Simulated scan of single mutants.
Amino acid sequence: MRVHIFAAAFFASTALAACSGANEAPAESEYNARKYMQAINDIARLDDQEADEARQPGELLAFAQIDRGDVVGDFVMGGGYVTRLLATAVGADGKVYAFQPEEFIAFSPDYAGLQDAAVAPYANDEGEPVHVYPLRAPLAQPGWPEPLDTIITVMNFHDLYLTDFSEGTAQQTIAMLYDALKPGGSLVVVDHYAVEGAGAEAANTLHRMDTDLALQDLTTAGFVLEEESAIYSRPSDPRTANVFDDAIRGQTDQFAWRLRKPG
């Protein structure tokens, strides 16, 4: 009798375990916002934190799959928001190349000061860059000193299509980004959605990006779209207003892509 009771108990517990396993939530990804809390809370980012609710820094780093020791580029760094995030996320063994195009500095000299301020906290006592390095050069020729694991460009990809630049600038710059990455490296692009079929005109009039145009040029260069994220999805944006209009500024619908260089 005890044998039958034991057998019944064994099969019951086995079935229960199987059932329990079937209902378990999937394991959390290695890349999640909590992984980057040290970078988010870095004292050098105190002035950035008021923008964090909209800019989702932890989710951005997780989507970009940033690891300690990575060599990364912040392409068109602007005010340095992403540079400061990356500086701590890659750790002391990593490197960040913070690129500010000469064309942007010529348009507004403030961009030079913003770059200087962004890299200053990561310099040694002599003021020399330690693991965050400023780069200034023409838009399509940053002069990356070494192959990169990841390049991130946030809300500036559409600028490649401005008529202020010579014809072919977008395609030349995308080819440069591709060549700058290690085999298997990734490019993360975040930008404002334009309406479908808007073309390059949307970049010039609204500072928005036609995703069909962007993806065509990126894949032509060799990139493979690996994942698209909805972290900046705001469906209420009609995608027809200039992104600097007060009515929509800071609330635009944005796409986030992670593209891979095959390797």
Score class of each variant (00 low, 15 high):
E128C: 03
G94C: 04
F99A: 04
K95W: 00
V119S: 01
G127L: 01
T83I: 02
G113A: 08
V82H: 09
Y133P: 05
D110H: 06
G113H: 00
A120D: 03
Y81K: 02
A89D: 06
T83D: 02
G78Y: 04
A98M: 06
A98W: 04
E126C: 09
Q115L: 15
L86R: 00
V132M: 04
H131W: 14
Y97V: 01
Y122T: 04
Q100Y: 07
N124P: 08
I105N: 11
G78P: 07
A112L: 14
L86S: 04
Y122I: 00
A117N: 13
A98D: 09
P101A: 00
Y111L: 09
M77Q: 14
F104P: 11
F99N: 05
R84P: 04
Q115V: 05
G94H: 06
F99I: 06
V119R: 05
E128S: 08
E102A: 12
A89H: 00
I105D: 00
G78R: 03
A92T: 14
D93V: 01
F107N: 11
T88C: 00
P109S: 01
T83F: 00
Y133E: 08
Q115F: 06
Q100W: 06
Y133K: 13
D93G: 06
Y133W: 14
Y133C: 12
V119A: 03
L114Q: 08
M77E: 12
A118N: 01
A120Q: 10
M77A: 12
V119K: 05
T88D: 11
P101S: 07
I105R: 10
L85N: 01
A87Y: 04
M77S: 13
D110Q: 08
P101M: 03
P101G: 05
A106P: 02
S108D: 13
A118V: 03
P129I: 03
G91V: 08
Y111M: 13
D110R: 15
Q100V: 10
V132F: 01
G78T: 09
E128F: 13
V132T: 12
F99P: 02
A120R: 08
P121G: 07
G79Q: 06
V130K: 10
V82R: 10
V76Y: 12
G94V: 13
E126A: 14
A92I: 10
D125W: 13
Q115P: 07
E126H: 12
D93I: 06
G113M: 12
G127R: 00
G127A: 08
